[in-house]
Amino acid sequence: MSSAETTPNSEAKPGKLLTFRTSAWLGWMIESNWTDPFIFAIYSIIRPISTAAILIVMYLVIRGGDFGSADFVNLYIGNAFFILVGAAIQGVSFGILDDREHYRTLKYIYIAPVRVPVYLFGRSVASILVACFSVLITLGFGIIFLKMPIALAEVKWGLFAAAFVLGMAVMICLGLMLGSWTLIIKNNAWSLGESLGAGLLIFSGAVFPLSVLPVPLQWVGSALPISYWLTLIRRALVPGIGRAYPMYTNLSDQQLILILLGFTLVYAALAALIYKRFDFIARERGNIDMVSNY
């Protein structure tokens, strides 16, 4: 760690790591300190379980209670991990909106000697941490109460770790792309992250295979990294059942990892370009210290 990162009074610009760490800590405080830990835990449990339960009941009324079937397990895991997509997308846009509209501190972040994209990355990490908690709870609920056949001994941990890290990286890039747009939106921006996240559910193959969609929509799904990521996660968590899911069956795990890596690089470049563009427009229009009161 450089001295600039360890000495608070140093006149040097703080390093990226310090900016990231501080903004992640700030994000976590904002996410969690509005209530006591007990209520926060309940809050973190109820929301993901309710969303998963909607799917459980939909499955139940149509197919009955066969929760060990490959169809249900794939649907359930896809839905559980899709929580992270929404969190990554929402994290950045909420960070911008919170700082600009609510706390009115975005302008101070801009004039402080920090790199704003790194700060935004940090803010989104807090949201992803809370989402990770939700994913664990959702999976735990499935294993304990629905007797879903997820055995820790059978999990391909190496594949899972690689897929998870790449997936999160690409999701944060996606979040930065959409979040950058928030810099110039005045109205309805609060719902942008959540709505777009929910909209992406269609193209992700999270709760149904892409083959169910009309062909043009399948192309959209294939142009997004989420479907590849979720396929890898399924194959890592429940190898037998995950392989049976009718998506990318002709691709090996290694090929899927390479595709995800390619997406990560492309999305990182795109996120940098898009952020730069929207950042310029926002500065030009004077949107950085705008309070829309919307």
């Binding site: 799917l55 939909m58 499955y59 149509i62 197919r63 169809d71 649907l75 929910a198 909209g199 559910l201 269609i202 709760v207 149904f208 295979p209 169910v212 969609l213």
Partner: peptide, 9 residues
């Protein structure tokens, strides 16, 4: 999304 879940089921 919800429509296609029912279609898939």
């Amino acid at each position: 999304g919800y429509v296609y879940i029912y279609r898939a089921l």
